[in-house]
């Protein structure tokens, strides 16, 4: 099978050509599985999440046309599916880890409460990306590895060749900064 670029793959989805899924799996399958495995920590479940991702992509394209960000588009779906799977199946023993990350992120919310997010996704997107844009590259990558890819502190320390203490310190400061940023910019989450 001839390898296609992202634009070509998206074009197949738009034409409702089922080979789009084969091309997607060939190009991004292993990376998506890795994203999922990082969250669910179970090979079989990660494989299921990968397959669910293709089905979800099939439903979402069109109307979406992620010609320039196909991987990020797919990975976002994988993350979402895996996270939900983790919460549903406490047998995966990952709910504690997800709980830990949730608790860490709750520290960034200026006034946490049980009411659902008061601002639109678009506003929140601006807030989060505005904050990330202010961080230097290394801190931003550490923050994303932790709260998007859901890496353990140990994995982050290996990836960035730094001590675990430094990773923890950096994350601690990033969370404080995010809370200050949200407060200062007047975002009421």
């Amino acid at each position: 099978m001839k390898a296609l670029d992202d634009n070509g793959i998206v074009e197949l989805y738009l034409q409702r050509d089922e080979t789009a899924i084969k091309h997607t799996a060939e190009k991004y399958g292993s990376r998506l599985r890795a994203v999922s495995y990082n969250i669910v920590s179970d090979s079989l479940t990660a494989e299921e999440c990968e397959n669910d991702t293709y089905m979800e992509a099939w439903k979402r394209i069109p109307p979406h046309e992620p010609r320039t960000y196909l991987y990020a588009f797919l990975a976002r779906i994988t993350r979402n599916i895996s996270l939900n799977r983790c919460r549903e199946q406490s047998a995966l023993k990952r709910s504690a880890f997800v709980g830990e990350l949730s608790a860490e992120l709750e520290q960034c919310i200026p006034a946490p409460d049980d009411i659902e997010c008061r601002i639109t996704d678009e506003e929140l997107r601006l807030a989060i990306n505005g904050f990330l844009g202010k961080l230097d590259e290394e801190k931003r990558n550490i923050f994303i590895r932790r709260y998007w890819y859901m890496d353990s502190v140990s994995d982050i320390s290996k990836r960035f060749a730094m001590s675990e203490s430094k990773v923890k310190t950096t994350l601690f400061r990033c969370r404080n900064r995010l809370r200050d940023y949200l407060e200062k910019e007047g975002y009421d989450l």
């Binding site: 008061r118 709260y147 989450l189």
Partner: peptide
């Protein structure tokens, strides 16, 4: 909003940042 919802909302991070972090 609680932390678990905020964790979900992290999906709103810019695709370019996601790729760069990978």
């Amino acid at each position: 909003m609680r932390g678990n919802e905020f964790l979900d909302k992290m999906e709103l991070i810019d695709p370019a940042y996601i790729e760069a972090a990978e």
